[in-house]
Nucleic acid binder design. Structure first.
Lengths: 110, 110
DNA sequence: CGGCATCCATGCGGATACTG
DNA sequence: CAGTATCCGCATGGATGCCG
């Protein structure tokens, strides 16, 4: 149930409200990805923002970062067990977002 | 122009990601409120941002704005029927946000 | 390959003053 | 009462260059 004073929605918004964070999480749901994989999967993201957002998500405990001390270096990112608790939330948010986009579309052609 | 987002989560984030929007919506769930009511219920919000966020939400079809042509003027804001579809989404988001806040707390004291 | 450092542009939000 | 107008600081994010 929702509390009256402080709205924890803001907490979730804060966690997800980076320009590329939803896309990052979306791409990690299925499988572990390397840094370079994510760059290719999200073509318009800059290295800086990808790195920064990944560090944010890692700091929140949502994303696991695994470094293999090889040459060349290899770093893998994956959803943590805790991060997977976001999946059902993301699905609900996605469903509403799709409805909203559909609604906007029907408005624009009417 | 219809920009088909790959991740509709961004749509929902866009709708809710104003600094005071969750609080505004939260305060409108129970009942219709006047502008001045919302100012009192959200003490730190400025008139500018309250007005701007309300217009954003109205533009998305989430909030209804009713003007009574009286002196002094009276304007009422309420969740639209469509806006009420956000409530179950908000509850899921809230539940996760509360868990996350709790998690952060237990981490900070461990 | 997987970053970080730096500089820069934009936009969100805050403070203040004014108004129908 | 319910806004609008204006100015401004700061954070977010983009572009580029360098590095282990």
């Amino acid at each position: 149930m929702i509390h009256q004073r402080e709205c924890p929605i803001e907490t979730l918004i804060h966690v997800l409200a980076g320009k590329w964070k939803p896309m990052i999480l979306w791409n990690l749901i299925d499988s572990t990805k390397r840094f370079n994989d994510l760059e290719k999967l999200i073509p318009d993201v800059s290295q800086k923002m990808l790195s920064q957002h990944l560090r944010d998500l890692e700091g929140e405990g949502i994303v696991d970062r695994t470094v293999y001390p090889t040459v060349p270096p290899k770093v893998e990112y994956s959803l943590s067990e805790y991060g997977k608790t976001l999946i059902p939330v993301a699905e609900v948010m996605c469903a509403w977002g799709e409805q909203h986009n559909q609604r906007k579309y029907t408005e624009s052609v009417s």
